[in-house]
C-alpha cells in the first residue's frame, strides 16, 4: 500500500511523515508540488512546514500547486487525505475543509507537547483510536487558531465532524477547542498538532500519534 507525502517549497515535516507511514507498515512515496502525477498512491498526506514561506496567507499559494489539482479531484472521489499543521491550512484554503486557521490568540509561536482527545474515530485517519481517547503529541505553529462562522461551527458540531479537541487550556484561541476536523465523508482530515512526531517514545513525547497512520491502512484494506 502506498501513501504519498507532498513536498512544497518550504515544507519541513515530509521526512517525519514518510517515516511514520513506514512505521505503520505502508510504503511512503515522495510527491513533488510541481508534478500533478500521484504515482499510484492510495492516500496522501500534506505535511507541516512553511510552504511558500507562508506568504500571503498560510497555504494560500500551495493550494494552486499542480499536485493539488489532482489531489483535490482524487479526494473528492474518496481518497484518504490528511493535512497536518500547514497541510490543514492548505486544506482550508482549498475549501476541502471549512473554516480557516488564523494567528494564535496570544501571537506567540507555540511548541509544546499537547494533550488532545479523539472526538470522532470513524474517519479514515482515526479508526485505530477509541472514541474519546486522550493522546499527547507535539503542537507547533504560529497560526493554529481555528475560526469559522457560527453556522459552520454548529454544522461541524452537529454532524460530529470535530475529529480532535485540545484538552485543558485553549492553546491558540481555536473555536470550541478544535484541533482537527473532517469532511462529511470522513476521508479528509485536517489536524493542527503533529502525530508524525510522536510515533515512538525514543524520538517523541509518546508513540500515540502512530494511530493516524495505522488507521489509513485499515481504511485502504477495507475499501
Amino acid at each position: 500500500m502506498k501513501v504519498g507525502v507532498v513536498t512544497f517549497p518550504g515544507t519541513l515535516d515530509d521526512r517525519d511523515a514518510a517515516r511514520a507511514v513506514r512505521f505503520a507498515g505502508a510504503q511512503a512515496v515522495a510527491l513533488w508540488h510541481a508534478d500533478s502525477d500521484l504515482h499510484g498512491v492510495d492516500a496522501v498526506i500534506l505535511p507541516g512546514g512553511f510552504s511558500y514561506g507562508d506568504y500571503l496567507r498560510c497555504g494560500a499559494i500551495s493550494r494552486f500547486a499542480p499536485v493539488m489539482q489532482t489531489i483535490i479531484t482524487r479526494a473528492g472521489e474518496g481518497m484518504p487525505l490528511l493535512g497536518i499543521c500547514n497541510g490543514f491550512q492548505v486544506l482550508c484554503e482549498a475549501h476541502l475543509l471549512p473554516g480557516a486557521l488564523t494567528r494564535n490568540s496570544e501571537l506567540h509561536f507555540l511548541c509544546r507537547d499537547q494533550k488532545i482527545s479523539i472526538e470522532n474515530n470513524k474517519t479514515a485517519w482515526t479508526s485505530s483510536y477509541s472514541q474519546g481517547e486522550e493522546i499527547v503529541i507535539p503542537l507547533k505553529n504560529g497560526e493554529g487558531s481555528f475560526q469559522c462562522d457560527d453556522a459552520t461551527l454548529a454544522r461541524l458540531e452537529g454532524d460530529g465532524r470535530i475529529v480532535a479537541r485540545y484538552v485543558g487550556e485553549n492553546p491558540n484561541g481555536s473555536r470550541n477547542l478544535i484541533a482537527g476536523i473532517t469532511n462529511e465523508r470522513g476521508n479528509i482530515v485536517g489536524l493542527m498538532p503533529h502525530p508524525e512526531h510522536a510515533i515512538d517514545s525514543l524520538t517523541g513525547p509518546s508513540d500515540q500519534g502512530l494511530g493516524f497512520f495505522t488507521s489509513v491502512l485499515t481504511a485502504m484494506v477495507n475499501k
Binding site: 488564523t102 494567528r103 494564535n104 490568540s105 496570544e106 501571537l107 487558531s145 475560526q147 462562522d149 484561541g173
Partner: peptide
C-alpha cells in the same frame, strides 16, 4: 480586512 467577527490578535496587540 479580516471580517469583524474574526479575532485579530495583531490589531489587539
Amino acid at each position: 480586512m479580516l471580517k469583524p467577527e474574526i479575532l485579530d490578535p495583531q490589531g489587539t496587540a
